[in-house]
Design a protein around this nucleic acid. Structure first.
Length: 202
DNA sequence: GCCTGGATTGTCT
DNA sequence: GACAATCCAGGCA
């Protein structure tokens, strides 16, 4: 009687808890006609009572998605250059999310290499690189990872029920003992141990 | 290899 | 007007 990853309830829990269970899941994109997949190997949790979170100071136009329903994609622009992708966690109105920090490329590696200007190594070992390699940009902010295209439905006109971005469970369980450490690149709540990583991944 | 600084723009004060 | 949940190139060892 467990909830599975194709149900929104699977995402409806506190970000640190969801973050650990996202490890070893596949992030799959179908963008520009190319399918790419990568195994999630590093994530960070952000909650609304967390000074480092974009939602700490309340709702704005930018972070509204993060305050919405779980299993949606929150994408923001970092340092004016890089897109970073998050999975909305918690309940509607919470303001929680999990930042996807690193992937182990699995499928569509040629396309990922091309998007990364021909670099063949270190394709997705960072939140900005991950988005670039997978083809995720600001325009994907707010999309439903479950492909239900619920709420406003004002982006794209597919109608086939498949999301451009999805998270898939291919049977590999999360690590029993994830590496836990402080989050990267933040200046507040620096010591909170909310970064999680699959052991043994490069 | 490690350290440094520059790029570049949306968002909030 | 300051700053940011980053990345890369270049310098030096």
């Amino acid at each position: 009687m467990s909830v599975d990853i194709t149900e929104r309830r699977w995402f409806e829990r506190d970000a640190p808890d969801l973050a650990v269970d996202l490890l070893n899941k596949l992030l799959v994109t179908q963008i520009d006609g190319v399918r790419c997949a990568g195994r999630i190997i590093e994530v960070e949790a952000y909650t609304s009572d967390d000074p480092a979170s974009h939602t700490f100071n309340g709702i704005t136009d930018r972070n509204a998605v993060m305050f919405g329903r779980p299993a949606h994609l929150y994408v923001y622009l970092s340092y004016g250059i890089h897109s970073c992708a998050n999975v909305v966690a918690g309940s509607d109105g919470d303001g929680q999310a999990v930042l996807l920090r690193a992937l182990d490329p699995v499928d569509g590696i040629e396309a990922m290499t091309a998007r990364r200007s021909g670099r063949r190594r270190q394709l997705a070992n960072g939140p900005g690189k991950l988005c670039q390699a997978m083809g995720i940009g600001l325009k994907h902010g707010g999309l439903d990872l479950l492909g239900h295209d619920d709420d406003h439905g004002h982006h794209g006109h597919h109608g086939h029920g498949l999301a451009d971005v999805a998270i898939v469970d291919d049977g590999v369980p999360p690590p029993g003992a994830p590496i836990i450490g402080p989050r990267i690149g933040i200046s507040k709540a620096v010591e909170a141990p909310w970064r999680f990583r699959t052991p043994g991944a490069l």
